[in-house]
């Protein structure tokens, strides 16, 4: 029995709300840790970073779904919307911690968005997610028809902007955000492989 044959029946049985519950658990855990010293001596930056990192991980999971089906026959398509919505939830939390607890005034928030390229890039990713979140429901899928797929190609620039934002926030040459960019680049490159070529092989 192949891996796909083992996973697919399990995935069919697993309700999507399990994914939501599991992936929302880090929120209360992180808030508790931030209050009790578990995130170190400066919890605001740590919280901001953890939330951002979970968001980018969720975006990457979302990008894995279609290659998994295409190249490994593993069908997790029914969870893709959950991962996308959860990524948006974490982006919003990341943004709120940054604006309210870190930067603290509207004036400074606006100044940062306009003046700091890495924040401009991050905000760009957030804005591009808005049409995605607005159309992440069955009614929008029906209403938009084939256009829905086109709109959701926006996930590619969103995740690339997120990776650039992550690299840019660090000082010096650091490995971690570059690894994220490499993984994202790899997942996007898989989409360039023509479908016919695979059939011919």
């Amino acid at each position: 029995m192949s891996i796909a044959d083992r996973i697919n029946p399990l995935a069919r049985k697993l309700p999507t709300w399990v994914v939501y519950v599991l992936y929302l658990l880090p929120v209360p855990v992180l808030l508790y840790m931030a209050q009790t010293g578990g995130l170190g001596r400066e919890p605001v930056k740590a919280l901001e970073h953890e939330l951002g990192e979970i968001a980018i991980q969720l975006l990457i999971i979302g990008l894995c779904i279609s290659p998994l089906r295409r190249f490994a026959g593993v069908n997790l398509l029914k969870f893709r919307r959950a991962f996308g919505i959860l990524a948006f939830v974490y982006v919003v939390l990341h943004l709120l911690v940054w604006a309210v607890l870190d930067v603290q005034t509207l004036e400074r928030v606006w100044a940062d968005i306009v003046k700091r390229p890495y924040i401009t890039v991050g905000m760009g990713a957030f804005v591009l997610m808005l049409p995605l979140i607005a159309t992440s429901n069955n009614r929008a899928v029906r209403w938009l028809g084939p256009l829905w797929r086109q709109v959701h190609l926006l996930t590619y620039p969103v995740v690339l902007l997120a990776a650039v934002h992550f690299i840019w926030v660090r000082k010096g040459f650091q490995i971690e955000p570059i690894l994220y960019l490499a993984v994202i680049g790899g997942l996007l490159a898989l989409r360039l492989i023509p479908k016919r070529a695979r059939v011919a092989a």
């Binding site: 607890l101 870190d102 700091r116 890495y118 840019w168």
Partner: peptide, 14 residues
């Protein structure tokens, strides 16, 4: 990449 006009005193909590 960021403003130097203000700072966060470490140890103040959330």
């Amino acid at each position: 990449r960021w403003s130097q006009a203000s700072e966060r005193l470490v140890g103040g909590g959330l």
